[in-house]
């Protein structure tokens, strides 16, 4: 397969950056997208050029590190996968592929396609936990039965990998899907309900402070989410916030 890559190059946070075109050849359908990026970088290094920086780690769709905006969509045209799980068979010979970093004020570019997603960590640090110390003396795991339905819903919310595709896809660069997934998971479980009020207020406040946009319910986040986190979670967070807003002291 012969392809034309149009890749965002930016040497550092203060560089203006631009799209640079790279032709690439001998790409096979069973290569992953990142295998293809490796091939490009090998070529660039041998030619004495600067390889393209991009984030990646587990390459099996779970760590959430890879983060490319491919042909106008977060993680590319396929659904329910991350960039590292995208395979070149999804593209056709001669195609032009745009590769850009996640774009959001809250995700400043570090280099090329690498962005700083620390904002998501800071949201988590503001409330994405149950305040329980490690002791070995908590109640027995089976002491509090949890309905399978709630447990499954909590699990589905908890599968968020924190990649930021929701932010990247959202026309407003909103992080509502990410934040609501954690709020939802913990709001559904008895262990998390105790701190539910403070959690949702704090996490939303941090989310706002980090400069994410506001949710306009376009639903783009859920479509592009590699883990198919549902909009149900945003609705649940909206309910949680409403309750919290009216009852917090």
């Amino acid at each position: 397969m012969k392809l034309t890559l149009k890749i965002w190059r930016q040497s550092g946070p203060n560089d203006k950056g631009q799209i640079v075109t790279y032709p690439i050849d001998n790409i096979e359908g069973d290569m992953s997208f990142l295998d293809m990026m490796d091939v490009l970088n090998e070529e660039l290094i041998v030619k004495g050029e600067d390889p393209v920086a991009f984030d990646h780690d587990c390459r099996e769709g779970i760590c959430g590190m890879c983060s490319l905006f491919i042909n106008g969509e977060a993680h590319g045209p396929d659904r329910a996968i991350t960039t590292c799980q995208l395979h070149m068979r999804k593209f056709s010979d001669g195609e032009t592929i745009y590769i850009e970093p996640w774009r959001a004020k809250a995700f400043p570019v570090i280099k090329d396609l690498v962005v700083d997603r620390g904002a998501l960590d800071r949201v988590m640090a503001s409330g994405g936990f149950v305040s329980v110390n490690t002791s070995g003396n908590t109640v027995d795991a089976n002491a509090i039965p949890i309905s399978k339905i709630d447990a499954d819903k909590a699990f589905e919310a908890a599968t968020c990998i924190g990649c930021g595709a929701c932010v990247a896809s959202c026309v407003n660069a909103s992080a509502m899907l990410f934040v609501s997934a954690k709020v939802s998971q913990l709001a559904l479980l008895p262990q998390g309900k105790i701190e539910a009020t403070e959690r949702v207020l704090n996490m939303v406040r941090t989310m706002d402070e980090e400069g994410f946009g506001n949710c306009t319910n376009t639903g783009a986040c859920a479509v592009e989410c590699p883990k198919e986190i549902s909009l149900d979670n945003i609705a649940r967070m909206n309910r949680e916030y409403f309750k919290a807003m009216l009852t917090s002291e």
């Binding site: 002791s135 795991a141 039965p145 949890i146 399978k148 699990f155 998971q185 913990l186």
Partner: peptide, 19 residues
């Protein structure tokens, strides 16, 4: 297991609500 459940780790459960 106790600690993780207390943290809100959503382990698989049976219909009776137990792990």
């Amino acid at each position: 297991i106790d600690q993780c459940v207390a943290q809100g780790v959503p382990f698989a459960r049976e219909y009776g609500g137990l792990l």
